[in-house]
């Protein structure tokens, strides 16, 4: 199944593109990411805790970036191996379009589960994948977007 999404980022395309290749940023955006390290120019290894329906597992995930066409598009793919829980592989074609106030990020993603995740979680994989995709890109937007100046007169939430 194809999952699609669209986000607005208040940064120029080049900056967005660069951030999408930054393991530190990726690590903060991948839901459940415990650690991430660069293992090649365009490859990263991440340790991800994820849950599909009743199956919860730690996925050793190899993330690769390909079809690089800076700053317009690239493909982000990942293959997570969750041991006895099975595996999930997926890829997302990401395109960046310059907009007046930043960049419009669009993606089309596919997910293929295997093993126990497919066996007992196949009904749930679509929803899970959609959530992971949405979480990833919305966090990405949050992480890379520059802090807006504090609004005058707004009470400090910390003191509540």
């Amino acid at each position: 199944m194809d999952l699609t999404g669209e986000f607005h980022v208040a940064l120029p395309r080049e900056a967005v593109f660069e951030a999408l290749n930054d393991p530190e940023i990726l690590g903060r955006c991948i839901p459940g990411c415990q650690s991430i390290e660069r293992v090649g120019e365009h490859e990263f290894d991440a340790d991800v805790l994820a849950r599909v329906g009743p199956v919860k597992a730690r996925f050793k995930t190899r993330i690769a970036v390909s079809n690089l066409n800076p700053p317009e598009s690239y493909t982000l793919s990942g293959e997570g191996r969750g041991g006895a829980a099975g595996f999930a592989s997926g890829s997302a074609d990401v395109s960046l379009e310059a907009a007046d106030d930043g960049t419009v990020l669009r993606y089309t993603a596919r997910v293929q589960p295997g093993g126990k995740i497919a066996q007992v979680g196949s009904r749930l994989i679509g929803g899970t994948a959609r959530k992971i995709g949405t979480d990833f890109f919305s966090r990405f937007v949050e992480v890379v977007t520059p802090e807006p100046p504090p609004e005058a007169g707004k009470p400090d939430e910390q003191e509540e």
Binding site: Q112, P113, G114, G115, A118, Q119, V120, S122, R123
Partner: peptide
């Protein structure tokens, strides 16, 4: 199509 069993529990 990849040979993953999709009906692998009493839920499915």
């Amino acid at each position: 199509a990849d040979g993953q069993l999709l009906t692998g529990s009493f839920m499915d």
